[in-house]
Nucleic acid binder design. Sequence first.
DNA 1: CCATAACGAAACGATGCGTTTCATTCAAGC
DNA 2: GCTTGAATGAAACGCATCGTTTCGTTATGG
Lengths: 206, 206
Amino acid sequence: MTSTVIAERRTSIGAQRNPASQEAILKAAADILRETGLSGFSIEAVARRAHAGKPTIYRWWSSRAALLLDVYHDQKHVEPVPDTGTIESDLFAFVTALFDYWRDSDAGSIFRFVIAEAQSDATTSAALRTYMAERIDQTAELVRRATRRGEISADVDPELTIELLAGFAWSRLLTGRLDMEPQRLHRLVRQMVWGLKSHGNCGGDR
Amino acid sequence: MTSTVIAERRTSIGAQRNPASQEAILKAAADILRETGLSGFSIEAVARRAHAGKPTIYRWWSSRAALLLDVYHDQKHVEPVPDTGTIESDLFAFVTALFDYWRDSDAGSIFRFVIAEAQSDATTSAALRTYMAERIDQTAELVRRATRRGEISADVDPELTIELLAGFAWSRLLTGRLDMEPQRLHRLVRQMVWGLKSHGNCGGDR
DNA sequence: CCATAACGAAACGATGCGTTTCATTCAAGC
DNA sequence: GCTTGAATGAAACGCATCGTTTCGTTATGG
């Protein structure tokens, strides 16, 4: 990844968007985010690194936030909603995959920056809300399946249940504490499923 | 709030810090945060509004983040940990007070900015982690009491339980969705206490 | 009484902002 | 096949804020 071939000057390919430029800009933006964080992420810096003109960037992205969101969408992969047969292991698989994904790729830090940017920029805020609502709705299917199986109480709120676990993951991401032992995470999930109460002889086989 | 008396020029009171300047700077900073948000919060803007010199600000605060943290600590009040007798209503009181406090004062938006700033600034990040750990430890007392009462299972993790609920509150704060109906919040808490499972004849009187 | 330090104001060079100008390259349309 | 027009990278613009330095003023503490 020494990028020996970035020095050559790109040019117009006619009256249409140059995909090579778009690609180079997104790549440069992602690299800068990874290497210097949000504070080094300026249009000027991206243009320099991508060997692109600033007007080219401003022509295709309306703001720094718009570019940031594009980088984020590029990074993001949609992990399938787990379906293991029990809600307990589904929830555990979900939150474990989330932690691993954020920790082992650049997606985690980029997502942090999107959340941070959303606190100042209305466009980013709206995009984040929409994205979050979608993801929660998708993942809540896991809870709905359990309800249909009769595994859990019928009055459980699927979205809120996912939001509870996802919010916990957010706070861990935002405070740089993604390094949790799996069994501690598992205990937390089991607690969510079974409740805080002592269970005596009732219910499951724990 | 026409602020008719801010125009007079302060001056040195000798070889010591001028409390009037400190006060004016913190006040101006809080006002700017409330009125224009984090994006308008620059040292330059604070100095202008406080009729203070920039060197005066830099002498007492090392960075924008340090000033932000001071404003935050000024705003913050310590709400007592609820003690109603049952963990269910304790948790509900805790999360309701948190939502109300964030929504009805400036503390919520200031806290958002601290979290955002912590994603770029190491000092803010460390301060946020320390603060969060303290608050969680304090509030976890609520869970420990329930354990001592024998109300809940002995292997419940007190800190993690609070963190779960607090993380949910964070995500709501950061996405501007603090407007929850109390009964929905209450159902969530009840679900945490009793678990997602159907309960049949076992356990409490719900 | 005098050294010392904090104060507000003003200006510094550096940097990024968003925009404009320019010559160049090529696809689309007549 | 030639012209029109849009996209490209580079360079420069005026403007704003950055963090720092310089300056004259003020008044405490030794």
